[in-house]
């Protein structure tokens, strides 16, 4: 994977982060490429959240370097991350229920004309972004977010994230609270982002979801990177093993099945 002459979009080298005596992340190397979905797996407490918070500027790593397009960068605030083109869609989505879709997508970055809000331009851009993501099931983009289904809300949150010239979208458990049809729609959205040339980091507990969209899978185990392999070279069984044991015991695949229907 390293023989490409173009530097990867994001490369983490030796990333470490401790909270007092707890080593949340130790010496993690990870490469994220544009146009690919990288799934981040790991058991609770494996360090997934800490890792994405280091990338999105909420935590500052204790050690390690972050290369953005081959250049070392330091991200110390969420704003730094946004300026590089990193957007994070958190599990709670951070949408204001009382505002409509357009208002939410432009929240904090409203377009104005002579001090007044330029509703028309915002509505046009929001509609174009939603259309480019093939989000076509909303009745009106002027309806309050409160009236949307879970999948539609997720779609609005993703559209909000990609509208700002983003290059990397991090999604934290986007399908955790969704039904079957809505999950399918969100996964379609994830592949769509990658096919637009964005890099996507997908955090998920659901291995069905991971295997249906991910190009590569990174597994964290107790703060270390247990593996980062193309999805085609892994199986569900192996990922579960990596998540629970941190290594692969090649000899005994059948017995390990008890560990996880995660």
């Amino acid at each position: 994977m390293q023989n490409s002459p173009v530097p990867p979009l994001l490369r983490l080298e030796g990333l470490s982060k401790s909270f007092g005596p707890v080593h949340a992340l130790s010496d993690v190397d990870l490469t994220i490429r544009a146009g690919e979905v990288t799934a981040l797996c790991g058991d609770n407490g494996a360090g997934k959240s800490v890792l994405i918070k280091c990338i999105s500027g909420i935590f500052t790593p204790d050690a390690g370097t972050l290369y953005w397009n081959g250049k070392p960068e330091s991200i110390s605030t969420p704003k730094d991350a946004n300026e590089l083109g990193i957007q994070t869609v958190y599990q709670d989505l951070a949408l204001a229920d009382n505002l409509d879709i357009v208002q939410n997508m432009f929240l904090g970055r409203e377009l104005t004309r002579h001090l007044a809000l330029d509703e028309d331009s915002m509505e046009r851009q929001a509609a174009a972004t939603l259309a480019s993501l093939s989000v076509t099931t909303v009745r009106s983009i002027r309806q309050p977010v409160a009236s949307l289904s879970g999948g539609q809300r997720q779609a609005v949150a993703v559209a909000k994230a990609v509208m700002w010239n983003s290059k990397l979208v991090i999604m934290d458990e986007p399908t955790a609270a969704l039904g079957v049809a809505q999950t399918a729609m969100v996964l379609k959205l994830v592949t769509q982002l990658a096919s637009r040339g964005l890099a996507v980091i997908l955090i998920s507990h659901n291995l069905n979801d991971v295997f249906s969209v991910a190009n590569s899978i990174a597994v964290l185990y107790l703060g270390t990177l247990a593996a980062h392999e193309p999805a085609s070279s892994l199986t569900r069984q192996k990922v579960v093993e990596l998540m629970t044991a941190g290594t692969l015991h090649h000899g005994i695949p059948q017995e390990e099945r008890d560990h996880g229907s995660a």
Partner: peptide, 19 residues
């Protein structure tokens, strides 16, 4: 005015939006 509604609707969303 938009921010007033946003803060009243979801203060955390408004904060993350940099308001």
């Amino acid at each position: 005015g938009r921010y007033v509604y946003a803060v009243g609707g979801n203060a955390e969303a408004a904060r993350r939006a940099g308001i």
